[in-house]
Design a binder for these strands. Structure first.
Length: 600
RNA sequence: GCCCCAGUAGCUCAAUGGAUAGAGCGAAGCUCUCCUAAAGCUUAGGUUGCAGGUUCGAUUCCUGCCUGGGGCACCA
């Protein structure tokens, strides 16, 4: 928030350097002063000193850095808006005059409100692709990690200033889907439950049962083998008929697919996710064949069909690389059917051409990172400039304490089950801690807090790390958790309710306590945290910030009296500070797709 | 064989070239006649996997090794 001050000080430093024959730094790194209670900005002169050393002068770098820092400090004096300037260990520290800056920060937050921290428009369109489970299954906790990461990323880039399109690309075809269709048709037709989640879970059970029927057992008897092979033949036949467009099977497929979509829509609604564009895999399958010929004619792909082979892209060779890196990939099977890569290439082309996307982000688990590197390189060879700005946000997969989740074996933790459990646990917490809360509010608060805990458990771990999902850990409400942050918001709200009317003006011209300064300093950092999180595509940056902000507020809360402040002027200023804190927490939580309750 | 990711306190994780490596959980203790104790405050806990290198400065960058996970053309 203090770019103007930084720039003018930078110019002073540069003029000092050039006047004294010191290498002029073209860009200075400014950081907050890292000591709590001290509020200001700092920069260092090690690089300048090291540059002198390299140019032949005999200098001791740390000592020389300190010398320059001292000189610069003298040259700068005490700029307007600052209270103190010091040179320490090669660093130049400039301490804000807290009353001016505090007022400016708080006024800015309250003026901008929900838009506090929003970045300038970047005139660029981003598409984020996420929330894409396969159909004919139920939504498990791994899908949840994907969805929450994608949504938060979308909110971050949008708030940072990008025009943002949310896209989902559900897999609605393939052998897994046909397997469900096969057993449904054979054994369970019209026996599906009514309730959408029950029905989704029921479909998953069918899949598990079918997989059992179709998988060879170790001690298989000849009769069992015969039976299994007969089943498999039925399934293959069904796949063939489906592929040929058999009307009965197509109808059945659409109907069952819709059940999965209904469940997905309900979950996305719970998560407050609004997908703008749906790309079904089945919709891009046929059109994607067209791009194969184009890639052959552009000499990107090699057609080996005349020799009975597939159509391939030798990526390393086309790029002129000697060492193997991107390897070779098939884009059309020798039977003329497409692959995952083919469809992703066709889809990317559509994103660029039909949707005008400048940068495309894929939230897909990390096992597919080679696939995306290959896809991006092929798009580059194809001539799409946007390919350079494509990004695969890979994330580690979610497993259970007893091992990997496996839909085919049925050992998955379903999102709905965890969400229901979360709500129950919060309800009993409310019963214990806030028994005077009216019954009719409890359910809504419990959902906000329960889902907040779950979301934060996913977001507070860097996306490239695997998560071993432990329900008790994920639904913890103490410490480094979503409810901890929500609770800060609730406490702020509570004070504000009791404060009554809020005056429009406040001066921070009294001696601010370290806890107040710390809190204001963290609030002032929010806009740049938004930019950093968006630039690095890292929800974790915002998750950490929200926790730091809540921590600063909780500490403040215990030490600093607000409603009973010494003077009316201090009371007014602190109420205004709390209003700004509440707003910033709310904005940060909103970016994390976590609700900010008034009570809990 | 090649490539990618991880290795930091007992456990789960932060810290992407800067000042004193920080949180949470767990452990010991303290704080509700006081704005919501889902909180705050003490204390204890570290050779940042190992060995080199670059740098004024390395958890961070480079090289090699060890351990664990993942991936390598007709699955998605």
């Amino acid at each position: 928030m203090f770019e103007i001050e930084q720039k003018s000080i930078e110019r002073l430093i540069q003029s000092y350097c050039s006047e004294n024959a010191i290498p002029v730094p073209n860009e200075l790194q400014w950081n907050p002063i890292p000591f709590s209670g001290d509020w200001g900005i700092s920069t260092s002169f090690f690089q300048v000193a090291a540059q002198e050393a390299r140019s032949g002068k005999k200098v001791n770098v740390p000592a020389r850095a300190q010398e320059i820092a001292e000189g610069a400090a003298d040259h700068i004096g005490i700029p307007k808006g600052f209270s103190r300037v010091e040179a320490v260990k090669g660093y130049l520290n400039l301490f804000f005059s807290s009353s001016d800056f505090s007022k400016r920060v708080i006024d800015q937050v309250l003026e901008d409100g929900n838009d506090f921290g929003r970045g300038e428009s970047k005139n660029e369109r981003v598409m984020v692709e996420y929330a894409q489970p396969n159909t004919h299954h139920s939504f498990h906790i791994g899908h949840y990690r994907n969805s929450i990461l994608g949504e938060v990323l979308a909110r971050l880039v949008e708030f940072a200033g990008f025009e943002t399109i949310r896209a989902s690309y559900p897999g609605d075809l393939g052998l897994g889907v046909i397997t469900v269709l096969w057993i449904y048709e054979k054994r369970y037709k019209n026996q599906e439950p009514e309730e959408i989640h029950e029905r989704g879970q029921w479909l998953l059970n069918l899949y598990v049962e079918a997989t059992n029927m179709l998988t060879a057992k170790d001690d298989e008897t000849p009769e069992e083998k015969e039976q299994r092979e007969a089943y498999d033949a039925e399934r293959r036949e069904m796949y063939r008929k489906w592929d040929a467009g058999d009307p009965y099977l197509r109808e059945l497929w659409l109907e069952t697919r819709e059940w999965s979509m209904e469940e997905l829509h309900d979950i996305l609604e719970m998560m407050d996710i609004n997908v703008d564009v749906w790309f079904f895999e089945s919709d891009v399958d046929e059109p994607s064949k067209a791009i194969v010929e184009e890639l052959i004619s552009k000499d990107i792909a090699d057609d080996e069909r005349p020799e009975g082979g597939p159509v391939i892209v030798r990526i390393d060779e086309k790029l002129g690389l000697k060492k193997e890196k991107y390897r070779t990939n098939v884009i059309l099977r020798n039977d003329g059917t497409t692959l995952y890569l083919t469809k992703d290439l066709a889809l990317a082309k559509d994103k660029f051409e039909k949707f005008g996307v400048d940068r495309s982000i894929y939230v897909v688990d990390v096992r597919q990172s080679l696939h995306f590197q290959q896809a991006f390189k092929i798009l580059e060879l194809w001539g799409f400039e946007q390919a350079k700005k494509c990004f695969h946000l890979g994330y580690g997969f979610v497993s259970l304490p007893e091992g990997a989740m496996s839909a085919r074996r049925g050992n998955v933790v379903l999102f709905k089950v965890v969400a229901d459990e979360a709500i129950q646990r919060v309800l009993s917490e409310i019963e214990e801690k806030n028994p005077e809360m009216p019954q009719n509010e409890r359910r809504d608060v419990a959902q906000q807090v329960g889902l907040g805990a779950l979301a934060y458990a996913m977001l507070s771990v860097d996306n490239n790390k695997d998560i071993i999902f432990d329900i008790d850990e994920a639904l913890s409400f103490d410490g480094h958790t979503g409810p901890y942050i929500q609770n800060a918001h609730v406490r702020a709200s509570s004070i504000l309710r009791k404060a009554g009317e809020i005056s429009g003006e406040a001066e921070f011209d009294y001696a601010l306590l370290p806890h107040e300064i710390e809190l204001i300093e963290i609030i002032s950092r929010f806009p740049q945290v938004v930019q950093q999180a968006a630039k690095e595509y890292r929800p974790l940056v915002m998750a950490n910030y929200a926790f730091d902000l809540a921590t600063a507020f909780h500490s403040f809360y215990h030490v600093v009296p607000v409603l009973k402040a010494e003077t009316d002027a201090m009371r007014t200023a602190r109420i205004r500070l709390i209003t700004a804190t509440k707003q910033t927490i709310a904005n940060a939580l909103r970016l994390l797709a976590i609700r900010a309750p008034e009570v809990m």
